[in-house]
Design a protein around this nucleic acid. Structure first.
Length: 788
DNA sequence: CCTCCCGACTCAGAAATCTTCCT
DNA sequence: CAGGAAGATTTCTGAGTCGGGAG
């Protein structure tokens, strides 16, 4: 079931909220759309208009028949009226009006004239119009010319222009060299108070480009085809090796993965003698290559094992030194660390879920593919790959990426960013949480507003209001449409009939694949009106039809913008997660720091569940649990045996005083593991083997003679051990299926955590690991009185 | 004007690596 | 105290969101 902890205060009974709503309420005043409902006249099946001819997945699947019938039906149905008195207003007619007629909400009171005045307003407004004309285009890597940027440059600050690639700076220039120039890298932007968020993100930007993976070195290990050794040319061998390295994963179990791989693999063989030979993946045996990889891995491991701690540290530092020049960038003279400075090496594309492109070969990125973004006066770094040069160098100060290239599989861009601890990231993180807090202050009226919308005459408003409820209550993602060459996953707006089940009176069961093909399964009791509406939207549709067929993500977000500047669907997730945590942390955290940390994790888990952040069980999980279970059973048996012994001993000492030292010892039987027979002359491998052999042997009974005090001491230890095992198992089972990290990193306002830690005298480091401490350094100064 | 596509950014779990705990 | 496994953290890169502009 869902937890609505966060919304309790605001979700008062529907009836009290819906009717009197809004006329005077601040939110309502800003919604011309709500008032224009009466004008709804006729129904245009939105899907036909908006989607026909599109490339998006659902467009082709819509059923026109369903479109018509469902919109025309009258929903004065009894379920509805009986269901909720508050809804009757909208029950009698349901004329949908053409979307077009109402979308451009007549600019009433606060309707922002989108094109011109952006919410951000602030510092750089003048840049606005300028950018709209084409600077943005110039910013994209594919534009090489200078476009007409000169004019613009004068009116704003530096915008984008491109430069021909010229020979780079000499090696050993300041950037990244041992003693950086630009200060200590501790720019405490949050203390300045000037958290501008404008168009221009920087004035000067200097960096050394990106780090390329090493060239492929052929190993010469053959592929076996129908038992025959085939020595492949390097390009094909490399790709075969990619596949071999995946043999242990379950990617190779997917037919799509195999066929995509094989198709690309064969392409590499086209002009070779192998083209005619290799015709079936099933006859390809990669085991020799796989064994080779295993071998290499073992060698590396052994080498590492042979090193002393100091040597290992040295090796690590040498590696750090090697990449050092790429890890530092200079932004407006400040040193910042670069996040993903390594260019993605070639590999097989590992798409999640049923990705249509999974298994395809992701080709090697060459310097020619890479666009660098640098300050106009920054030296152009030398291309690190001999005989190659950078694709493009641009100077776009409106973006924060340092370099980028186009991904050969998805066609999308990959970017190199500064690290999470940078000012760029920190500022936007801060802004994100401030926006969520702002939502908190107006959530009550927004909820009022969408409840009112449940009874709207127009179906778009009705669907929008119902969808917004789901986004708010269940923290669903908004659900953009997806293309044919992506996995079929959905979010709120793209939910289909097949994803819902209705159980009267008011339970809706959700079952669909969300982001990353993670299954969302939840049965929720919803408001009656929502239950009714969802059923209504599903009526007369095919299972594969969209539930919210009149609603688009764009129109939903446009609407949200009217409710609050800068509001979009994703803000609800941030808001709900943070509010939930803040509320959950009100409880009693316990005594010790350990208790308190456990308490925090438990509340963190509530949020993770809300957001459906799952983690797949590690492959060994089942085995681990079984092992724990046997250990626990043994512990139980041992406790029982000790108790028996103690009872016997207490009785046995008839002659002497019960429990006196002179009582005869009693025998208890403990089952002990077999001890490995380790001899000094054994090699490490042999020792390991012997240990394993011993561990696999059944436990042997060992009889021990004990007296009372011994028995008691053993019993005490045994009971403690049992208690620990039991709680370990519970904890493990409990936390196994949820990932706490995602919400901690992305959704929970760190100031909530900092404040809680201070109030409860828990060191923040107990909650935030090192990188999170850096990422959230802007929040560390917050005191315990912070309220989200 | 209205789509549709693109670009830039956040968010996501898997995999790799490091650390701690247990026997 | 070693050696390994479990657990925690970091890295990696795929998958979303969302706004803007071209056509």
């Amino acid at each position: 079931m869902s937890s609505f902890a966060s919304s309790d205060d605001d979700s008062r009974p529907l009836a009290t909220l819906v009717r009197p709503s809004a006329r005077g309420a601040p939110a309502a005043a800003a919604h011309p759309a709500a008032d224009s409902m009466d004008e709804d006249e006729d129904d245009v099946p939105l899907a036909q208009v908006r989607r026909s001819g599109g490339t998006k997945r659902k467009s082709a699947e819509m059923h026109p028949a369903a479109d018509e019938s469902d919109d025309d039906e009258d929903d004065g149905g009894s379920a509805y009226e009986d269901g909720d008195e508050a809804m009757d207003g909208g029950a009698d007619d349901d004329d949908d009006l053409p979307l077009a007629a109402r979308r451009p909400a007549p600019a009433a009171a606060s309707s922002p004239a989108r094109k011109r005045a952006r919410p951000a307003g602030g510092a750089v407004t003048p840049a606005r119009g300028v950018k709209a004309k084409g600077a943005a285009a110039a910013s994209t890597p594919k534009v090489v010319t200078k476009v007409k940027s000169e004019r613009r440059v004068s009116s704003t600050k530096t915008k984008t222009e491109t430069t021909t690639v010229s020979p780079g700076r000499a090696p050993g220039t300041p950037l990244g060299a041992a003693d950086g120039e630009g200060g200590d890298g501790n720019f405490r932007w949050w203390e300045g108070g000037n958290k501008t968020e404008g168009e221009v993100k920087w004035t000067t930007l200097e960096h050394n480009g990106v780090f390329f993976p090493p060239e492929y070195e052929p190993h010469g290990v053959p592929l076996l085809y129908a038992g025959k050794e085939l020595y492949l040319p390097p390009e094909a061998e490399e790709v075969a090796t990619f596949y071999a390295s995946k043999l242990q994963t379950d990617h190779v179990q997917k037919e799509k993965f195999r066929s995509n791989f094989f198709a690309d693999f064969k392409k590499l063989l086209v002009d070779t003698a192998f083209a005619k030979v290799i015709t079936s993946l099933d006859k390809c045996d990669f085991s020799r290559i796989e064994a080779y990889l295993e071998d290499e891995k073992a060698k590396k491991k052994a080498e590492k094992k042979g090193q002393t701690t100091a040597e290992r540290k040295e090796a690590r530092e040498a590696e750090a030194e090697r990449v050092r020049q790429f890890t530092v960038a200079l932004v407006d003279g400040r040193e910042e660390t670069v996040g993903n400075f390594r260019v993605e090496p070639p590999n097989l594309f590992l798409g999640r879920g049923d990705h249509p492109l999974t298994g395809k070969v992701k080709r090697r990125i060459q310097p020619e593919d890479v666009t660098l973004n640098l300050g106009p006066s920054a030296p152009i770094p030398e291309c690190p790959v001999a005989g190659h040069k950078w694709g493009k160098v641009i100077h776009n100060s409106c973006v924060t990426w340092l370099a980028g290239w186009k991904d050969s599989i998805t066609g999308g861009y990959k970017y190199v960013w500064l690290s999470a601890g940078s000012a760029f990231k920190g500022m936007s993180d801060h802004a994100k949480f401030e926006k969520a807090r702002q939502l908190k202050s107006c959530i009550a009226s927004i909820r009022k507003e969408y409840r009112k919308g449940w009874a709207a005459k127009g179906k778009e408003i009705r669907q929008r209001s119902t969808a917004l409820y789901l986004i708010d209550k269940l923290a669903l993602r908004v659900g953009n449409e997806k293309a044919e060459d992506e996995a079929d996953t959905v979010g709120c707006c793209s939910l289909r009939v097949e994803h819902l089940k209705f159980t009267p009176p008011v339970t809706v069961s959700f079952d669909f694949l969300g982001k990353d093909s993670i299954r969302y399964e939840n049965a929720v009791e919803v408001d009656k009106a929502v239950f009714y509406n969802l059923q209504l939207f599903c009526r007369n549709k095919q299972p594969s039809d969209n539930i919210f067929h009149r609603l688009s993500v764009t129109s939903l977000n446009d609407y949200l913008k009217q409710l609050m500047p800068g509001l979009s669907a994703k803000v609800f997730r941030t808001f709900n997660a943070s509010v939930t945590l803040a509320e959950c942390l009100q409880g009693d955290p316990g005594e010790t720091v350990t208790d308190k940390v456990a308490f925090y994790n438990k509340q963190n888990k509530v949020v993770a569940e809300l957001c459906n952040h799952v983690r797949t069980l590690p492959s060994g999980h089942k085995g681990q649990m079984e092992k724990l279970e046997t250990r626990r059973a043994e512990a139980v048996a041992w406790v029982k045996e000790l108790k028996r012994g103690l009872a016997k001993w207490n009785k046995g000492g008839k002659g002497a005083k019960a429990g006196a030292a002179s009582s005869p010892a009693v025998e208890v039987t403990q089952y002990m593991p077999v001890k490995p027979e380790i001899v000094e002359t054994m090699t490490a491998d042999e020792k390991a083997q012997e240990r394993k052999r011993a561990a696999d042997m059944p436990k042997v009974p060992t009889v021990k003679s004990m007296r009372g005090d011994q028995l008691k001491a053993h019993l005490k230890r045994a009971e403690e051990r049992l208690a620990k095992l039991t709680s370990d198992m519970e904890m493990k089972e409990d936390l196994q299926t949820v990932a706490l990290g995602t919400s901690k990193q992305n959704y929970l306002d760190p100031r909530i955590t900092v404040a809680w830690c201070k109030a409860n005298e828990v060191p923040v480091e107990k909650i935030f690991a090192k990188t999170l401490m850096t990422k959230f350094s802007w929040a560390m100064a917050e005191d315990s009185s912070f309220v989200f």
